[in-house]
Amino acid sequence: MDQYLDKDRIKQLISRIRYDIGHKDVEPDIRDVVWNEKSRELVIITSDRPGKSTVIGKGGWVAGRLKEELKISGVHVEAYTDLMVRRYRMELARERLNQIRSTLHSPALNSLVHLLEERIEMPYALASLLENHEVQADSPPSVVALSGGVDSSFSLIMADILGFQPRAVTVDPGSIILPGYFKTSVEHLTQKLQVPHEYLPLSMEEVIQESLQGRFHPCGRCSKLIEKTVLSYAQKMEAQFLFYGDLLSTGADSLIWEDNILRINLPALLSATKGEVKGIARSWGVEKKNGYGCPLLKEVQKKHPSMRRYSIQRIERETRAGVLEPGEALDMIMRLI
Score class of each variant (00 low, 15 high):
Lys302Asn: 15
Gly163Trp: 00
Leu104Cys: 10
Ser283Cys: 05
Leu129Asp: 07
Leu70Trp: 11
Ala63Lys: 03
Glu238Ser: 12
Gln12Arg: 15
Gly59Phe: 15
Ile17Ala: 02
Asp20Glu: 13
Thr81Gln: 14
Glu118Ala: 15
Glu205Cys: 13
Phe164Lys: 02
Thr54Arg: 00
Arg49Asn: 13
Ile17Arg: 01
His23Ala: 13
Arg65Cys: 00
Ile256Trp: 08
Pro107Glu: 05
Arg308Gly: 05
Ser223Trp: 13
Pro50Leu: 10
Ala281Gly: 12
Lys289Asp: 13
Leu270Asp: 00
Leu262Tyr: 03
Arg221Gln: 11
Gly64Ile: 12
Lys24His: 06
Glu258Asn: 11
His76Gly: 00
Ile208Ala: 11
Pro326Ile: 09
Ser73Cys: 07
Ile337Thr: 10
Gln3Glu: 12
Asp253Gly: 12
Cys294Pro: 07
Arg320Lys: 15
Ile161Gly: 08
Leu189His: 02
Leu178Asn: 03
Ser106Pro: 04
Gln240Val: 07
Val135Ile: 12
Pro28His: 06
Lys24Glu: 15
Lys274Pro: 02
Arg89Tyr: 14
Glu258Lys: 08
Pro326Thr: 05
Arg65Ile: 07
Lys302His: 11
Gln194Arg: 11
Gly74Val: 04
Ser102Phe: 12
Arg314Lys: 15
Ile337Leu: 08
Glu328Pro: 03
His23Phe: 06
Leu178Tyr: 06
Trp284Gln: 09
Ile157Asp: 05
Leu193Cys: 03
His304Phe: 15
Ile120Ala: 10
Ser153Asn: 04
Leu324Asn: 05
Glu238Tyr: 11
Ser73Phe: 06
Ser15Asn: 08
Arg31His: 08
Leu242Asp: 07
Leu109Gly: 01
Tyr292Cys: 14
His105Trp: 15
Met334Tyr: 05
Pro305Ala: 03
Leu109Cys: 13
Ile56Thr: 01
Asp331Tyr: 13
Val207Asp: 04
Ala321Lys: 08
Glu78Gly: 02
Pro179Asn: 08
Ser283Pro: 05
Asp259Val: 07
Pro166His: 04
His217Lys: 14
Leu270Gln: 05
Lys236Glu: 11
Ile14Met: 07
Leu324Gly: 06
Leu200Thr: 07
Tyr124His: 13
Cys294Leu: 10
Asp8Ile: 11
Asn260Asp: 12
Ile17Cys: 03
Arg49Ala: 10
Asp246Lys: 02
Asp138Gly: 03
Phe154Ala: 02
Asp8Tyr: 09
Glu206Lys: 14
Gly220Met: 10
Leu330Arg: 15
Leu269Trp: 02
Asp6Gly: 07
Leu146Arg: 02
Ile45Cys: 07
Leu116Ser: 02
Ser142Val: 00
